[in-house]
Design a protein around this nucleic acid. Structure first.
Length: 431
DNA sequence: TTTTGAGTTGTTCGA
DNA sequence: GTCGAACAACTCAAA
């Protein structure tokens, strides 16, 4: 049997048909395009069976597949080790070209290199595209060509470059949809991939409060969050469209999107931050790392309402308000003197928007060990934070049902913990 | 090369 | 109640 000549577009964390650069370029190919997604066993094997993020990926793929079905095409969904899957695809089709959008995490870089080599060996052309970010690694650098490690000058340069760019062209790939490979691949259920439905769900994003972001962002009771982060994580929204829109809408909100790229380029240029302090002079801190303290933090039973409400919101929904993330992170590192890596790992497990670069970057920021981090003597006072940002206790009552029935005592005295944290850091920081 | 200014999100203390 | 300084110097970026 003669194998059909095809191109393949490989979806990874860009789960949309709309304004997807790599997909657009793929559809310009002279070969019909098979859209592919691989559930990567090297990642999935470490996840719980009810991981809501896998559910969201599955749901997003299902929507894409529904769209494709309208034009007599379908998504090819595979599960296994990526190299083995690609070997099988090369067996089944005469693959001429492969298109995908770049992914900058250490694991992804390694994986993509292996696949690119496999394709090259088989004389298949592969093309990768910048789609996940406005500016990728080494596009925003200091005059000497080295990466920025301080946010503000990075942001200034980023904005300068963005303003000088030609206006963003939105790509309407739908005019090219006729070039999708006609197929009727069967779409697997979540159970067939080895997962189960979770009660926790990614919610649709909501941009209606962005205009007032600078005024409302610190008040968790208002629930004016955009809920964009998981969508950015999995690429169900286009960063180009979002930035283009946010640019005229709200500077502070835009700045958060620039933080995203700042931490991405930090991870790319300094991959050691995944498991090491960015500032190695902080390596000598004597963490207490007490298991039972960590468990109380995880379960939201520290006795500090702001901390507990945040952790319970996380445990129940997979989200946590940004202001509260700072409070719980500072509490873990400074009040409990637990290594930021413990907290980072817990967030990685629970957050729907979990993204390696931002998680590591922000945890190191809170711990004071990161680039451009909070100074070590800055210790958030959970009671003052509550008074300032949830004065009426609306947020904490939402997540702590028993709050008015008499709430437990703090597990550690603030003044004591603050002094201990500053003294411990001071003693541990190498000169 | 040297100098200068600046650095996400805080808290506490004392005048 | 309000305000500035201290917390601790240090490193980075740019001129």
């Amino acid at each position: 049997m003669i194998k059909q000549k095809v191109a393949v577009f490989w979806f990874r964390r860009d789960l949309r048909l709309d304004d997807n650069l790599g997909l657009f370029r793929a559809l310009e190919s002279k070969f019909p395009v098979i859209p592919l997604f691989i559930f990567d066993e090297d990642i999935l094997d470490n996840l719980p069976k009810k991981d809501p993020r896998v559910g969201f990926i599955h749901e997003s793929l299902s929507k894409i597949n529904d769209e494709l079905n309208k034009i007599e095409s379908s998504l090819l969904v595979k599960k296994g080790k990526t190299v083995a899957i690609w070997e099988s695809i090369i067996q089944d089709f005469d693959v001429k070209e492969v298109f995908f959008n770049k992914d900058y995490e250490p694991y992804a870089i390694k994986r993509d290199l292996a696949i690119s080599q496999l394709l090259e060996t088989n004389k298949i052309k592969s093309f990768s595209f910048k789609d996940q970010v406005i500016f990728e690694e080494m596009e925003i650098t200091k005059a000497d060509g080295l990466p920025y490690t301080v946010y503000t000058p990075y942001k200034n340069k980023w904005l300068e470059k963005y303003k000088s760019m030609a206006p963003v062209q939105e790509m309407d790939a739908s005019i090219l949809f006729s070039n999708f490979y006609k197929s009727n691949f069967s779409f697997p259920t979540l159970e067939q991939i080895g997962f189960e439905e979770s009660a926790i769900k990614v919610v649709p994003h909501n941009l209606k409060f962005v205009g007032n972001y600078h005024e409302t962002r610190d008040f968790p009771a208002l629930d004016t969050t955009s809920y964009l982060s998981p969508h950015l994580r999995f690429g169900t929204v286009s960063i180009r469209k979002l930035v283009n829109w946010a640019f005229h809408k709200n500077d502070v909100f835009l700045s958060e999107l620039i933080w995203r790229e700042f931490f991405m380029q930090i991870l790319f240029s300094f991959p050691k931050v995944v498991s090491n302090n960015f500032k190695s002079s902080y390596d000598g801190i004597q963490w207490l790392n007490k298991e039972e303290d960590f468990k109380r933090w995880c379960s939201g039973t520290t006795g500090y309402p702001m901390v507990d409400a945040g952790m319970r919101q996380l445990n129940e929904t997979g989200y946590m308000h940004n202001r509260v993330r700072m409070v719980v992170a500072s509490f873990l590192c400074k009040h409990l003197l637990i290594n930021w890596q413990w907290g980072e790992a817990y967030f990685a497990e629970k957050l729907l928007d979990y993204e390696l670069s931002a998680n590591v970057g922000n945890w190191q920021w809170a711990a004071g060990t990161g680039c451009d981090a909070a100074p070590y003597f800055r210790v958030f006072n959970p009671e003052i934070q509550l008074k300032k940002f949830d004065e009426k206790g609306i947020y904490i009552r939402k997540w702590i049902k028993e709050f008015d029935l008499g709430y437990g005592k703090p597990m550690v005295d603030h003044a004591f913990a603050r002094d201990r944290a500053i003294a411990t850091y001071k003693a541990g920081i190498l000169k």
